[in-house]
């Protein structure tokens, strides 16, 4: 139990960091996933291999990268290779265990939208687009997603499938011939959601300390299923908080 106070965002980041196992080869998205992956590497996963789409393999940044092509990623990497190679030889060839992604909008089957809110040809909000995410979601062994939970972000069905989660549910991924298992965990500032073994619908399996199921339901844009055995996330330890805050302060 921590002596220190912490925010819901800090709980989310630390829960996401814990999801990354030691020795895992991880394709890391910028932002929250990158913060979490770098905490993991400093804590319980010193042998995790962090791969960034700018071509950096085995990145060991001394501070958090400000962008995907930050010099701090290439400077301490095992190898820096051309961008076509990172996607073809490493991601597509199936060498990556875990893809670690953020999202603007996610639906109940963990499909991700980072392209457009509203109709594509007459958008209400134009978002940045796909980047590396569609093929990360398709070709990594499994996918961890982290984002803040709200009804704006957690919608029944996304306006645009930028990156496929479990599609329409069930065995949809397998029917499409995708090799990776797809999203296995969605870690938010309120709890953790995992796909149901059969339907693949995201189900609340863990709530963070001090959060109620009602709160999570209110922040979800569909009628959220809750696991029979709902767990409570361990609160951040002092060590975890210290490592996270040192890393952020250095950045």
């Amino acid at each position: 139990m921590s002596e220190l106070e912490y925010t819901t965002d800090e709980m989310m980041t630390i829960a996401a960091a814990r999801a990354l196992g030691d020795g895992t080869v991880c394709f890391v998205g910028i932002g929250l996933p990158s913060t979490a992956a770098n905490i993991a590497r400093r804590m319980h996963a010193p042998n995790a291999v962090l791969i960034y789409e700018s071509g950096c393999i085995g990145a060991k940044p001394t501070r958090l990268p400000a962008s995907i092509g930050d010099g701090v990623l290439s400077e301490f990497a095992d190898a820096v290779i051309a961008v076509p190679e990172i996607f073809a030889y490493w991601l597509q060839a199936g060498r990556i265990d875990v893809g670690f992604l953020g999202a603007a909008q996610i639906d109940k089957f963990a499909n991700i939208n980072t392209t457009v809110i509203g109709p594509y040809d007459d958008p209400k909000v134009r978002l940045p687009g796909a980047g590396g995410a569609p093929e990360i979601a398709a070709n990594c062994g499994s996918v961890i997603i982290t984002l803040r939970q709200s009804t704006r972000a957690f919608v029944e069905q996304v306006d645009f499938v930028t990156s496929l989660g479990h599609g329409e549910g069930g065995d949809h991924r397998a029917r499409l011939g995708l090799r990776g298992a797809g999203p296995t965990e969605v870690i938010t500032d309120l709890g953790v959601l995992r796909p149901d073994a059969t339907t693949r619908e995201l189900t609340l399996t863990s709530i963070h300390p001090g959060v109620t199921v009602e709160q999570v339901r209110d922040a979800t844009g569909w009628d959220l299923c809750v696991a029979d055995r709902l767990e409570v996330t361990d609160p951040p330890t002092d060590d975890e908080l210290r490592v996270m805050r040192e890393l952020k302060a250095a950045s």
């Binding site: 076509p84 996607f87 398709a138």
Partner: peptide, 29 residues
């Protein structure tokens, strides 16, 4: 997507009319 664009560049450099990848399946793109 990045993977698609990277493959398009590679095909362009190789003098081929198209590139090929395991990508975009199931997306709206």
């Amino acid at each position: 997507s990045h993977a698609g664009m990277a493959e398009r560049w590679r095909a362009g450099a190789a003098g081929l009319p198209f590139g090929v990848l395991r990508g975009y399946v199931g997306t709206s793109l």
